[in-house]
């Protein structure tokens, strides 16, 4: 999907001459600014590489030249004020934005080296390599068991032993097994909100995804359920590569290894979470993560 050349920003606009505290103002004025990416990020082995990615909704550009590597087996948090394109970026990774009419993109992403937006890419196969959890729990109208093994079912897996094993492993992985092991045949819609969200995580990790996409997974949950899901994300670290969108700074600082700060469709600063929250390069980042702006 090549973008029309007239909306392509000229490289010269990315001028580093602005003072640090002017960057957000410059962005708001429609100028292009460079992203501050800490060195430590580049030293990690990336599972997913986002490469000069632009996205338009109709005439409106929602993502501007996003370039960021997502490290393997770490939790990466995307933060930023509403409408900054975090969710759009996340949904671009598994090409869910394909379903939205009037979306155009340019640039590319690579999952373990395989192009995501190449013309020859099989979207279905691609999505099978990722798991996604949405803002609101969206369990399917079927039993808990069938929810978890859904990805295997659509792949045609019929072997009961395999399905049982995957179901138990995924539910244990999502810290839900003990709560539901006696009622796997019950409707998933009968679970509480927090349980539903953990079920969705179990569903997402059932097919051993290479990257797990979490779109504000706790925003519809109460504090206790949120705590459980956060603990779960902690446990997933090391096993799965997680890319997570969140609105909650505490959550980002508690659960993530790396944090990316986005603003109006641009990646502003990206680095290890401790650095972003304690000694960021940019004062704007500090202002945002400490709550003085946003």
């Amino acid at each position: 999907m090549p973008a029309p050349s007239d909306t392509q920003p000229p490289d010269t606009a990315a001028s580093p001459t602005f003072a640090a505290d002017d960057r957000l103002v410059a962005v708001a004025a429609g100028m292009e600014v460079p992203s501050e990416v800490h060195e430590q990020v580049s030293s990690e082995k990336p599972v997913l590489e986002i490469d000069s990615f632009n996205l338009w909704y109709g005439q409106k550009q929602a993502l501007h030249r996003i370039t960021m590597p997502i490290p393997e087996c770490k939790v990466t948090a995307l933060v930023g004020p509403s409408g900054c394109g975090k969710s759009t970026l996340l949904r671009s990774v598994n090409r869910l934005n394909d379903l939205v009419q009037s979306v155009r993109i340019s640039g590319d992403m690579r999952l373990n080296g395989d192009s995501i937006y190449d013309r020859g890419t099989d979207v279905i196969e691609l999505r099978k390599r990722m798991g996604m959890v949405f803002q609101k729990p969206n369990p399917f109208p079927m039993s808990i068991y069938e929810n978890v093994v859904y990805a295997l079912r659509i792949d045609g897996e019929r072997n009961r032993g395999v399905l049982d094993e995957v179901c138990e492993r995924s539910l244990r992985g999502a810290a839900l097994w003990d709560e539901v092991k006696d009622r796997l045949a019950d409707s998933a819609l009968g679970l509480s909100g927090g349980q539903q969200q953990r079920l969705c995580i179990a569903r997402a990790i059932a097919a051993e995804p290479e990257v797990l996409l979490l779109d504000e997974p706790c925003s519809a949950l109460d504090p206790i359920a949120t705590g459980k899901v956060e603990d779960l994300i902690q446990e997933l670290r090391g096993t799965y590569s997680v890319l997570m969108v969140t609105h909650n700074m505490q959550q980002a600082s508690r659960t993530s290894d790396y944090t990316a700060f986005m603003y109006l469709g641009r990646l502003i600063e990206y680095g290890p979470t401790t650095e972003i929250f304690t000694k960021p390069i940019l004062r704007e980042t500090e202002a945002y993560v400490t709550g003085r702006f946003g």
């Binding site: 379903l99 279905i124 999505r127 099978k128 969206n138 990805a151 792949d155």
Partner: peptide, 21 residues
């Protein structure tokens, strides 16, 4: 729509999503 998206995100095709969800 969230159900459809959930199904697509699991790697289901259009017809699979319609038939199963």
């Amino acid at each position: 729509n969230s159900m459809r998206e959930g199904s697509y995100a699991c790697g289901a095709g259009k017809w699979q999503t319609i038939r199963r969800i």
